[in-house]
Design a binder for these strands. Structure first.
Length: 915
DNA sequence: ATCCTCCCCTAC
DNA sequence: TAAGGTAGGGGAGGAT
């Protein structure tokens, strides 16, 4: 049985249905329909009980450390900023004293540079527009429509070109801004202000933006706009939005609604007090300053505007054919990219917390002796929409969705839709045209990625304050292990957390509380939107019985279809199938998961730290190539991106995987503009013995793999590059530098060492100056290189390499006949057995083992330099002797033959092979 | 038996 | 116009 507690929303007088979804931050697969509904009432004027007003974090709580830590961190940041500002302005002449700018859109100099100018010369700079703090708006180019909107909300503030600041600095005095003001150049034919003006504008009329009369300024305000009557119902102007929020600014309480669902009402009778809070606590909270909220950094007061931060005006064309910076621009604007990389960002941002909580993983892994866990799952409600409209109360009960474009016939995708929009059937992943067909008055708002980050940071700061075992699932979703907080009722804690989230972010969150992660997550699903649900263990069976299998995490479209074809739709039905049957049908692990999950069994522990196993980048939109040059340019940029991400994570990878989407034969142009359409996906990987993050290596390897696909570049619709088998870059570099070069090359003469370094560095620079003479090349190394590399080297030697190799063919044959090979030893293996599988090490019939005792010694003892578990061996043909070159860690059980061959290639790649 | 590659599926 | 990514996990099948 479900007991529903009242929920409140100031503008909703009618009873609403709380829809249930799997997630608030939807992917492309729409979630299932509602299964549980709750009635939500109106409580516009309801005050909060005292218990809810008090500081949610007890002073003596075990979480105090985290709260204090966060507060201290913020304070330090603020101090740092203020110190910077005061120091800087002391140096400057203070010509901008009293001036505070807000930079809108792209400018030259950049926003960052302008900020530095202001700081240096005693002025102020705000990231978010506020009429209270900004004195001048600085703007480069803006389309007419946006200019008009800008004027509307600027309410008479000067909108000035950046040249005003630059010239003032040059003149060493504050010049009049008047000659620098931007004309709005409003097109008289275009009287309607539309929300669409917030989206990318193609035509930017810069030439118009000069010399305008002062009385235009400030007269295009919303209120005075005669065009308002002409605005269609489904289009709301930015200025209207602004005005509407202004009205509410000083008047009423800022409300939100909340539903509290307790799966078992009886079981919590003893906790009536808790539920008394839950009934009303979120009914309303003070919002006397609804537009002003403290931010987590710098302590600046920000006032946010519904702006196009996420869909910043740009007139760049957007496909690989037309935009040389396509990869970069693409990722800046991709919502899926934002979602995808968010966890990495979180790891960096909250690394202090993560380090502090590192040990918690180990402590809870042993399931047998641990006490019953209490898990809380928290998920923000329709995050992408909520964040964008959080300061626009009038939009709360209107259907709103987030998308890149509001073009009526467009194929832009809906990323997130609020509940009123969902009531019309608007779903994430829909094209805007279809969404508008469902809901003609749907309001489309642009992304605001900066705001998402800001709110996500606030969200996690709050979570860390209450709990030290937080597993981040995404920017808007997390698990908390509350087992150690048992002295507080977890339901009460969940409520306090949600209340604080609502207060701080103006967005609502839902929570699920249960014994394990699976049930907590399912509980949240029942509680949405803006509610919480507790599932006591004795009610799990009832809860699950009729639950659709699709609702279980891990069961997606494919598995759901397979189960449907076997007449299994609910967890109750799935429970009737034996584990063996499920394992036979779906594989061991999947079968096990199905069997456990449909019974509510989940032994996963909340993991505060998760190891990165792969890093990659992929683009499957806007990808079109005319020729190989196009493709290669794109691939280089993709490699750059991956290389940077690897460096950002301080890891390097050994396995490089290239994935290419190729237009399927006969496939038509995709319905989606510049989409990839119907494709075949091809993927191939190459494993190298030494991990890399090097752009040149990635470029070479990825190109080599692509060549092996034999695809016409005109057919390519998507490309992805990923590195796995990651190793720590720091450890790798340390091992490489300290053990390899120094230890192995220290023994030869200084001369050799110097020569080696010279070659290495010249190769790194990409020139061939200082390359060894052709006759010093080890043909045995070169011939194992991929053909395109051979070709490249051949070019370096002006075509002489091929002749050289041919000339040595006979000699090579004779050498082969007497070649011996070595194998990499197994751990603890004392012998270096001859495998006969590949010729790797020698030119003169000697193996590394025989030649170099400094290698053989440690190997024999099973003890390797630098604590590494194995060595890779390559050849050095200097003085026609083979030597072993220690190049790093090779996994114990790697494919030896493969490793040897690739080792040669890689050695060359990494320029540590010295001829 | 174990590992590897190439997929596919899933969640966000 | 429009930004269809990222990463983890597991299964199938082949190599060793």
């Amino acid at each position: 049985m479900l007991q529903f507690h009242a929920s409140f929303f100031p503008d909703l007088a009618q009873v609403r249905t709380a829809r249930v979804t799997m997630s608030s931050l939807e992917g492309r697969h729409p979630s299932s329909a509602a299964t549980i509904s709750s009635s939500l009432g109106d409580s516009r004027k309801r005050g909060r009980p005292d218990s809810a007003r008090r500081n949610p974090r007890k002073r003596n709580s075990s979480f105090a450390d985290f709260g204090s830590y966060m507060a201290e961190k913020n304070r330090k940041l603020r101090d740092q900023f203020e110190t910077d500002a005061s120091t800087s302005s002391a140096d400057g002449r203070g010509i901008f004293r009293g001036i505070s700018i807000f930079v809108d859109g792209f400018t030259i100099p950049s926003s960052q540079e302008l900020k530095e100018f202001m700081l240096k010369h005693g002025g102020g700079f705000v990231n978010y527009f506020s009429r209270h703090t900004v004195t001048h708006i600085i703007c480069g180019n803006l389309p007419d429509s946006k200019m008009k909107n800008l004027r509307a909300f600027s309410r008479g503030l000067p909108v000035v070109r950046p040249a005003w600041l630059v010239d003032s600095i040059a003149a060493n005095k504050l010049l009049s801004w008047f000659p620098y003001q931007l004309s709005d150049g409003v097109n008289e034919r275009c009287k309607q202000q539309k929300l669409s003006t917030f989206f990318t504008q193609k035509s930017i009329s810069n030439s118009k933006n000069v010399e305008t009369s002062a009385d235009q300024q400030g007269t295009v305000g919303l209120e005075g706009s005669s065009s308002n009557d002409e605005v269609p119902k489904n289009i709301i102007s930015y200025a209207q939005l602004q005005a509407s929020t202004d009205e509410g600014q000083d008047s009423e309480e800022f409300g939100c609604y909340e539903s509290e669902i307790d799966f078992d009402a009886k079981s919590v009778e003893a906790n009536d007090a808790v539920y008394a809070i839950s009934c009303s606590v979120l009914g309303a909270f003070d919002s006397s300053k609804p537009h002003i909220h403290n931010t987590s950094c710098c302590g600046n007061t920000k006032e946010e505007i519904l702006d196009t931060k996420g869909a910043k005006a740009s007139n760049m064309p957007h496909s690989t054919l037309t935009d040389p910076k396509f990869v970069e621009n693409y990722f800046k604007n991709s919502r899926l990219h934002f979602i995808g990389i968010w966890r990495n960002r979180y790891r960096q941002h909250f690394s202090d917390f993560l380090c502090g909580a590192k040990s918690s993983n180990a402590n809870i892994d042993s399931l047998s002796d641990r006490k019953k866990t209490i898990i809380v799952h928290i998920d923000m409600d329709c995050f992408f929409v909520s964040v964008v409209i959080r300061n626009f109360r009038d939009l709360f009960n209107k259907p709103v969705a987030v998308s890149h474009s509001d073009s009526l016939n467009g194929t832009a995708e809906i990323s997130s839709a609020n509940y009123p929009a969902r009531d019309y059937g608007v779903k994430a992943g829909m094209f805007v045209r279809d969404a508008k067909a469902c809901c003609p008055h749907l309001v489309i708002v642009p992304y605001n990625f900066e705001a998402y980050e800001e709110v996500a940071d606030q969200f996690y700061s709050i979570l860390h304050k209450y709990c030290n075992k937080v597993q981040a699932i995404s920017c808007d979703e997390a698990f908390l292990d509350m087992t150690e907080c048992s002295r507080d009722d977890p339901r009460k804690l969940a409520l306090m957390i949600r209340e604080e989230i609502s207060k701080k972010t103006r967005c609502t969150a839902s929570a699920g509380i249960a014994d394990n992660m699976l049930l907590a997550r399912l509980a949240t699903r029942s509680a949405k939107p803006n509610g919480q649900c507790f599932i006591p263990s004795e009610k799990v069976r009832d809860f699950l019985n009729d639950l659709p299998v699709k609702a279980l995490p891990g069961i997606g479209h494919s598995l759901d279809e397979k189960l449907k074809s076997r007449q299994i739709q609910s967890c109750g039905q799935l429970q009737k199938i034996s584990k063996e049957e499920l394992q036979n049908e779906f594989g061991k692990m999947t079968g096990d998961m199905l069997w456990s999950y449909c019974r509510g069994i989940d032994n996963r522990a909340v993991k505060t730290v998760q190891e990165t196993k792969s890093v990659g980048a992929e683009v499957n939109w806007g990808v079109r190539f005319n020729d190989n040059t196009d493709f290669e340019n794109f691939l280089v940029n993709l490699c750059k991106e991956v290389s940077l991400r690897l460096q950002g994570c301080r890891v390097q990878g050994r396995t490089v995987t290239l994935k290419v989407k190729k237009r399927r034969k006969g496939a038509e142009e995709p319905a989606k503009f510049l989409g990839c359409g119907d494709c075949e996906t091809m993927s191939r990987s190459m494993t190298i013995p030494v991990a890399t993050d090097d752009l040149i290596s990635l470029r070479r390897i990825s190109k080599q793999i692509f060549v092996s696909f034999h695809i016409d570049v005109k057919e390519v619709r998507g490309v992805g590059l990923k590195l796995s088998r990651l190793e720590s870059a720091d450890l790798h570099r340390k091992g490489f530098e300290e053990n390899a070069i120094k230890s192995w090359l220290a023994s030869p003469s200084e001369k050799v060492m110097k020569q080696s370094n010279k070659i290495a560095s010249s190769l790194k620079k990409g020139n061939n100056e200082g390359l060894p003479p052709l006759c010093s090349l080890d043909v045995e190394v070169v011939k194992y290189l991929p053909p395109e590399i051979i070709s490249e080297i051949n070019d370096i030697y002006m075509g002489e390499l091929h002749h050289f190799m041919e000339a040595h063919e006979d000699e090579n044959r004779s050498i082969k006949s007497c070649k011996r090979t070595i194998s990499l030893p197994e751990q603890g293996d004392n012998s270096l057995a001859s495998s006969g599988q590949a010729a790797i090490s020698d030119v003169g019939g000697h193996t590394a083992y025989e030649l170099n005792d400094s290698v053989a010694g440690p190997l024999k003892k099973g003890k390797l330099p630098g604590g590494y578990s194995a060595v890779a061996i390559s050849s050095i043909s200097t003085q026609r002797k083979a030597q072993a070159l220690y190049i790093g860690d090779v996994p114990n059980k790697c494919n030896e033959l493969n490793a040897k061959i690739q080792c040669r290639y890689l050695s060359f790649e990494r320029y540590v092979i010295f001829f």
